[in-house]
Design a protein around this nucleic acid. Structure first.
Length: 447
RNA sequence: GUGAGUGUAGCUCAGUCGGUUAGAGCGCCAGAUUGUGGUUCUGGAAGUCGCCGGUUCGAAUCCGGUCAUUCACCCCA
């Protein structure tokens, strides 16, 4: 059979895995610094935990796991007869692969509400699965890096999350724009325009501004049944780019004003503090039709054509669906795969690899090979990443292997070395070769 | 879920109007060079032209189907 992997999935070569770990390590260290703790949840959840949480579109993209054993024996006969896939699925698949990390986290919190102390700050770096059509920057299996805090509605956390975004992308050297808005402001706009019942249609349309432009948004709102007068009003309001100006526009909407105040508080927390990237209020930021109710975030990489590389916000009642109402949470997510693609495109990965192999031993004959193995062990004991070619003999072959593995140094061992007790250390880049004792080699390679 | 493009050597691709034995570059293997890699030179291996069917004297080439893959939309990280 031909070897292959499912569409939308990828293998990672050592080179790629090292780069990915660099991203994960950077993100993890910042999370830790801000007092977040790691948790992990299973790849599979009960299907009922997942369904209905992401809208109809999301349900379609859920991977279902077929029941074990003779699953058809217990299948819904009527559904099978009528080719009703939705109904049939419920009777043959009890589990599904997680679609994101937020819903499993909510489930986790509800299950352990009595043992956790709140506010609970957790981070989670794990793969998620979506049965989407793959394309640039979109995969069926990809990692998410989530930080959330539940059990507090303090806006200090919004400020913290903005700092975390800033710090991570500063560490990774990716120039970004961190956009921030508040769902309550969008509510207020809908109220001011007299279409509170069309809030979702409005936000979905506004969210596409970057992609389809002002005219496109206008057209989409009309198509979604928003009256022209309301569309005009919304357009006027959206022209306000400052919080101050919005205050008067939204004077009639209590919710809208609260949103403005919340954002002002967040900016207050951050005032005078060092932020390296652009952190900007963006009234057109909408973040699809998710569960957010307060501040929302989105991160855009500058200088490359790529969807958002991070996003998140506050949700007032995420755990309510699992029977624990009135627990507020706020969190953001980093899209590791897209961050990788951006860094690759902008050439931002550090060139030197401290985890790489430092030196490779090669021997001319069997006796030298045994001698070299002893020297190798000495280097390893001294903490130097070292390796040996598995058999003595043809130098050309051994040197080629050293080249392929991009080893900076090689050590040659033969009769001369065994007699003098010294090693021939060759710098592969310059070609220079020096004769040193094992101790001197250790000293040299430790630099 | 909707629409479009592309499948030829390990990789990237060329292949004229349908016409003899399907090519190149890179990579790989061997030698030039038995204590020294990259460069160079010489030689070599490697393809069911995605798969199935149709048209034709003849198909990598035209047609239909199918699978894979890429891109756009929907949605999203």
């Amino acid at each position: 059979m031909k070897p292959g992997i499912p569409k939308g999935t990828r293998d990672f070569t050592p080179d790629q895995a090292i780069k990915r770990n660099y991203i994960f390590d950077t993100i993890r260290s910042v999370f830790t610094k801000y007092g977040f703790q790691p948790i992990e949840t299973p790849a599979m959840e009960n299907l009922e935990t997942l369904t209905g949480k992401y809208g109809d579109e999301g349900d379609r993209l859920l991977f279902k796991v077929l029941n074990n054993g003779d699953y058809l024996a217990k299948a819904d006969e009527a559904a099978l007869e009528n080719r009703d896939s939705n109904k049939l699925t419920a009777s043959i698949a009890r589990r599904g692969l997680r679609y994101d990390l937020t819903v499993p986290f909510a489930r986790f919190v509800v299950m352990r509400q009595n043992e956790l102390s709140f506010p609970f700050k957790r981070y989670q770096i794990q793969p998620v699965w979506r049965a989407d059509r793959p394309q640039r920057g979109r995969y069926q299996e990809f990692y998410q890096c989530d930080v959330d805090v539940v059990g507090s509605d303090s806006l200090v956390y919004e400020a913290e999350l903005a700092q975390i975004y800033d710090e991570v992308f500063t560490c990774l050297n990716i120039p970004v724009r961190i956009k921030i808005n508040n769902r309550k402001i969008l509510n207020g706009i809908a109220e001011a325009a007299g279409i509170p019942d069309k809030l979702t249609d409005m936000t979905v349309a506004i969210d596409k501004l970057d992609k389809i432009g002002a005219d496109g948004v206008r057209k989409e709102m009309m198509e979604r049944g928003i009256p022209e007068t309301a569309v005009d009003r919304i357009e006027t309001i959206l022209k306000n780019t400052s919080l101050e100006a919005l205050k008067s526009e939204l004077a009639a909407s209590e919710t809208g004003l609260k949103g403005v105040t919340e954002l002002e508080t967040v900016f207050d927390y951050l005032s005078g503090l060092r932020i390296n990237n652009e952190l900007a209020f963006d009234v057109t930021l909408a973040r699809g039709l998710s569960y957010y109710t307060g501040c929302i975030f989105e991160v855009q990489a500058l200088g490359v054509q790529m969807g958002s590389i991070g996003g998140g916000g506050r949700y007032d009642d995420l755990t309510g669906i699992f029977g624990l109402p009135n627990v507020s949470g706020v969190g953001v997510s980093f899209g590791a795969e897209r961050i990788y693609d951006v860094m690759e495109e902008l050439n931002l990965f550090p060139a030197d690899n401290p985890a790489g192999l430092k030196v490779l031993f090669m021997a001319f004959d069997e006796a030298a090979h045994r001698y070299a193995f002893r020297c190798l062990t000495q280097l390893r004991t001294a903490g130097i990443n070292a390796d040996i070619y598995p058999e003595p003999g043809k130098l050309k072959k051994q040197m080629k292997y050293a080249n392929d593995r991009q080893v900076p140094f090689v050590i040659l061992v033969g009769d001369d070395e065994m007699q003098t007790g010294k090693l021939a250390l060759k710098d592969m880049a310059s070609g220079e070769q020096v004769t040193l004792s094992v101790e001197e080699v250790v000293k040299r390679l430790r630099n």
